[in-house]
Structures are given as C-alpha cells and as structure tokens.
C-alpha cells in the first residue's frame, strides 16, 4: 500500500544498542524536555479575571434590534424560522393597533418570539435570512442554567433595551460587505 504522507514512521525491531538499553540517556532527555516546559510561559489564562478576545465574527447570543427611534424592527415574517436548520425559532405574529406606532416599525410584529438555545447551533442563517435587519448574533455568551426550560429565550431576553446607551453593538457583524451581500440578496429574485 502506498503511504499517503511521508510522516509515518517505519516500525523496526532492531536490537537496541548498549546506550539505549541502559535507558538513562533517554530518561535524562525526557527530563530535560519536561524541565523546559516547567519554565515556559503558561498557555492557560485566569478565566474570570482575564478573558480571551473574541473573534470579530463570533456568533453568540441573539439580539432583536430596535431602530433609531426605539421601535422593534421585526415584522414576524418568519423567514428566520424557515431558514433555521435546527428549528429553534418560533413566533406568533400580531397586528399593530393604532397608537402603537412608536413601539413597532411595521404593521405586523411578533407577539411572541422564542429561540430555544438548546437547539440553536449558532450558524447565523437567521441573520442572513432577515430582510429587516432585525436579528443579529452577538459576542455575548449564552450562560448556563439549571433548568432546560430556562434555555427557551423569549422577547424579554432577546429584544435589546430601549435606552440608547444600553443598545447592543452589532457593528462588527454589519460591515459593508455584509450589507452589500444583503442588498444583492434582497433583489435577487428581480434579476
């Protein structure tokens, strides 16, 4: 059989020389390796005090964005739920009543919007599918819980706060390239 790489070692059963048989040089060699590691810089970090920098495109807990006037962007079109390969997203749509214009941007909105975080695989397809720039994945970590039921996140967790200063920053994920891609996609059926 032909070898796929040249890294495989050929096993030989040759007799060991005297120096190999007394083992002491080999043991000393091993000890020199371990002592070198002893003084090497440690790889692990002190986690709660220090955290590793996230990648720019890290996909963590979702956020439902509001627009500049504080209205929810989501129009409950259901494209995210369709796109979701894990079927983690469910929603119930509702119609906007008069006088609620300052709450919802579109005439239709999501009364209930849940993401099951146990099912979610954080692929980001919902974000790609969204025509209203409403859902984004952020660099926040989904924290552990004691109950399975507490992993089903509703709008109370997902929608970002009204206060401008507490808005979740998603600029890392909404780059020029992404916007262009979405632009193309939105009008793809017209081409």
């Amino acid at each position: 059989m032909q070898a796929l790489t040249n890294r495989s070692k050929v096993v030989s059963d040759k007799k060991m020389t005297f120096m190999e048989r007394i083992y002491i040089p080999a043991i000393l060699k091993g000890m020199s390796i371990t002592i070198r590691h002893f003084f090497r810089k440690k790889i692990s970090i002190n986690y709660p005090e220090q955290t590793r920098e996230f990648s720019k495109v890290y996909r963590g807990q979702h956020v439902l964005k509001r627009d500049d006037e504080g209205r929810e962007r989501c129009t409950a079109c259901g494209l995210c739920a369709v796109a979701c390969p894990a079927e983690a997203i469910t929603m119930i749509a509702g119609e906007r009543k008069p006088g609620e214009e300052n709450l919802y941007r579109e005439e239709k909105y999501a009364e209930v919007y849940t993401i099951n975080m146990l099912r979610c695989i954080f692929c980001g397809d919902c974000e790609d599918a969204c025509p209203k720039e409403a859902i984004f994945l952020t660099d926040r970590i989904v924290v552990s819980q004691y109950e399975r039921s507490s992993f089903i996140y509703g709008k109370d967790i997902l929608v970002e706060p009204l206060d401008q200063s507490l808005r979740i920053d998603i600029s890392a994920r909404q780059t020029e390239k992404v916007l262009n891609f979405k632009q193309d996609k939105r009008f793809a059926h017209n081409k």
Binding site: T34, I35, H37, F38, R40, K41, K42, I43, S44, N46
Partner: peptide
C-alpha cells in the same frame, strides 16, 4: 503545581 507547570498549566491558584 509541578505537574501543572510541566504541562504548561497554572495549577491550583
């Protein structure tokens, strides 16, 4: 500690 240091870890701290 020695075990940790030889394996590039930090050990109990």
């Amino acid at each position: 500690k020695v075990a940790a240091f030889m394996q590039d870890r930090r050990g109990p701290n």
